[in-house]
Design a protein around this nucleic acid. Structure first.
Length: 740
DNA sequence: GAGCACTGC
């Protein structure tokens, strides 16, 4: 296999003379276009194809098509910087297709061009657009691949996929041999998956001279990318944005929320018509701001036009999110002052959602960002200043349809001196246990010397290795074990995949599958439940409308399990299935139908992975006393590092880390157990542990004796209790021996 | 008796 790879001629080396190549592609293009036959599928072009083609040719990237093809021909890696509106995401992959096709001598050889996106929606919508542009059916020559949905086939030549999905593919095919060219789009966003792909692809390119890489990014960091990819050529494509005038405050603002509201009102009173976008940090702040803006504007009476204030955050259900696309309200009287739409949004409007018609942007300079503390292994959300790149992106939102204005609620000096150039990449802000497992599976043995664009803190890597070692995914030399290999196949946190893998030993894999599916969808499903004026309870498959709180609480209590929230989730899942997944049943019981559907979807995916590894699907007899005991023990064998002990003072302390924590009030326990496992540790008004289940101290000794090795344990009450347990064990063992 | 930046497999 290796020799064959070496024999392959580098893809674009065939043509020596760039002008000859261009002639050829032009001739080809002209010939097929003249015949009106689509070279990709042999069908005649539709009228729509020609209509779109005309518009495509107006995009800024088209002016540089030849330059792009020449550069791609002469180098293995290419960096392309293009601002919003340049058309790079839709056009560059098509240019690449033309190039590959022109150079491909073996017409029967299958090849693929992949283009990654950080978000599912983008992968889906861009591929649909490109299929239209190429006049082919989606899923045929052009397709996409995202979790739960592979819309590609044997004919596919261009595939848009999420970065996480390409990483998954690399686990099965480390040299990514199906691909001729890989395009990493939106590289500046520096998602965890993209960062891992950087390092991985750098290695793959060394082993595969016939593979090419195009890195596409929107901003300033191009030189850093260039340096990382050993001086790869850099191409710049202009964007197509209207000019945006930037205003700074003269003095720092004491209260950015109050300043933001004041600025909205001023714009509405003094500026010409045009919609406003305000960036704030979170749901509560946004709802609060919307109320205040409405109040302030109504105080102005009819000297100003009407406003439509629209909140926007990810947890808003899609129907509510749609309101951002509504037009601004009409003037109250004919010829009266114009109406204005005011969108108050989180960072979601910075990258994920684009609203046309925005002319004014208000940027207070803050966002909630994830931070990770490796010492106590806690990720939390913190309101922190944004980066220059982020500020730039925000202001660009004002110039999509016409020239706009951006009001930065901080001083110019502060922008220049205080804001860091780029947002910290995610890899520096996350718990890396799962990432390290993926890297190990990809065959990266030496993590310390892995070529990260931004290497994570050694302590974070050490913590991740330690966790994986305790879970039995890595041996003491740091090599992937068989268990670790299976764990890496699950799209779950290592703790969760561990409990799944061992669950057949506790005769409860069916139940652990359900718990895992419910838990893993907790985070990503909140959006389905949130309706304005409604509240949710955690676990968030429960809905709690403000006008029916009592009924909702009663409904929830029917599912409550006194031994813990994990078991409550299991009860809900079982009830959902017993009622045939009936949406009416969900409605009547204040259970969210969408959340349940999605959990069920995840569960099916997990079942498929379990079967692939011959992991048995089994249950303990429901009437057995051990039914719940087995489930709790199986959970403990994954979560033995997330245990808290009730001290005599009445507080919980996390085991080993000795952090004071409190049971989150959403728990459904009817007592305070001496020992609990928890799913997450959240830092808000206090240190809370959320989704909690009662476990027994002697199980710790049975299930995770390697972790509860007392010779390596900080002095604390939990240690003394465990010491007693170990002694009791020993006594019992001796007694049983002497009886024999 | 508290609360959810945003993604992804």
């Amino acid at each position: 296999m290796g020799t064959e790879r070496k024999r392959k001629v580098s893809l674009f080396d065939v043509m020596e003379d760039p002008s000859a190549k261009n002639n050829k592609s032009n001739v080809l293009g002209a010939a097929s276009a003249a015949a009106g036959i689509n070279k990709w599928n042999g069908k005649p072009y539709s009228q729509r194809y020609y209509d779109i083609l005309e518009k495509r040719r107006d995009l800024p990237v088209w002016l540089q098509k030849d330059e792009f093809l020449r550069t791609l021909q002469s180098s293995q890696t290419l960096i392309l910087v293009g601002e919003t509106g340049s058309g790079k995401t839709t056009q560059i992959p098509q240019f690449v297709l033309d190039a590959v096709e022109a150079e491909n001598t073996n017409k029967h050889k299958k090849w693929l061009v992949g283009c990654t996106q950080p978000r599912r929606v983008a992968a889906m919508s861009v591929s649909r657009r490109v299929a239209d542009e190429m006049d082919v059916a989606i899923g045929e020559e052009v397709g996409y691949s995202i979790r739960f949905e592979d819309c590609s086939g044997p004919r596919t030549m261009l595939k848009y996929l999420t970065d996480g999905m390409l990483l998954r593919e690399a686990m099965a095919d480390p040299l990514l041999e199906r691909y001729k060219v890989i395009i990493l789009d939106e590289a500046h966003e520096r998602t965890l998956a993209t960062d891992v792909l950087f390092g991985l692809l750098k290695e793959v390119l060394r082993n595969r001279p016939d593979l090419k890489l195009v890195v596409m990014s929107a901003t300033l960091e191009a030189e850093k990318f260039q340096e990382y990819f050993s001086g790869a050529p850099l191409m710049k494509v202009p964007g197509r944005l209207h000019p945006v005038e930037i205003f700074y405050t003269q003095e720092p603002e004491r209260d950015y929320l109050e300043a933001a509201i004041r600025t909205v009102v001023q714009i509405h009173m003094c500026e010409p018509p045009g919609d406003v976008l305000v960036f704030l940090t979170g749901e509560e702040e946004i709802e609060d701001a919307c109320r205040k803006i409405n109040k302030e504007v109504s105080n102005l009476g009819d000297q100003v036009g009407p406003v439509k204030v629209v909140p926007l955050y990810s947890t808003l259900p899609p129907a509510m999110q749609q309101k951002i696309f509504d037009p601004a309200p009409e003037p109250l009287t004919e010829g009266g002052p114009a109406g204005r739409k005011i969108v108050v949004s989180t960072n979601i409007a910075e990258t994920s959602l684009t609203i046309d018609g925005i002319v004014y942007v208000i940027d207070p300079g803050f966002a909630k960002q994830k931070v990770y503390n490796p010492r106590i292994r806690v990720e939390s959300l913190l309101v922190s200043p944004i980066s220059k790149a982020s500020a730039h992106q925000r202001s660009g939102r004002a110039g999509r349809t016409r020239p706009g204005k951006c009001f930065r609620l901080y001083t110019e000096k502060s922008f220049n001196n205080d804001l860091q150039p780029q947002t910290y990449p995610e890899i520096l802000r996350s718990n890396l246990a799962n990432t390290v497992l993926t890297l190990k599976k990809l065959g990266i043995d030496d993590l310390v010397h892995f070529d990260f664009m931004d290497p994570p803190a050694p302590e974070t890597l050490m913590r991740a290795l330690e966790v994986l070692n305790y879970l039995g995914a890595l041996d003491d030399e740091g090599n992937l074990t068989r268990t670790g290999e299976i764990m890496s196949e699950f799209p779950l946190d290592p703790q969760m995949s561990k409990m799944l893998i061992v669950s057949p030993e506790f005769n409860c894999s069916n139940e652990i599958l359900s718990v895992s599916a419910m838990l893993s969808e907790l985070g990503s499903l909140v959006w389905a439940l949130h309706v304005r004026g409604w509240e949710t309870l955690i676990p968030n498959c429960f809905v709690r409308p403000r006008e029916a709180q009592k009924a909702a609480d009663e409904a929830k209590s029917k599912f409550g399990h006194i031994d813990g929230d994990h078991l409550t989730l299991l009860n809900v899942y079982h009830a959902y299935k017993q009622n045939n997944e009936d949406p009416n049943w969900c409605f009547e019981n204040f259970v969210n139908n969408r959340a349940m559907k999605s959990a069920d979807n995840v569960r099916q995916q997990l079942v498929r992975i379990m079967s692939r590894f011959n992991l048995k699907m089994c249950s303990t007899d429901f009437n057995s006393r051990d039914y719940y005991v087995n489930i709790r023990k199986a959970m403990l064998s994954g979560y033995f590092m997330q245990v808290a002990h009730l001290e005599r003072t009445g507080h919980y302390l996390t085991v080993k880390d000795n952090q004071v924590v409190h049971l989150h009030p959403s728990n459904c326990l009817d007592h305070k157990p001496e020992w609990v496992i928890y799913n997450e540790y959240v830092l808000t008004t206090r240190n809370f542990i959320r989704t909690v289940t009662d476990i027994r101290g002697d199980w710790l000794v049975d299930v995770a004796s390697h972790y509860y090795d007392l010779s390596n344990f900080p002095n604390c009450e939990a240690k003394r209790v465990l010491e007693k347990l170990y002694k009791k064990r020993e006594r019992e063992r001796n007694e049983s021996k002497s009886r024999k």
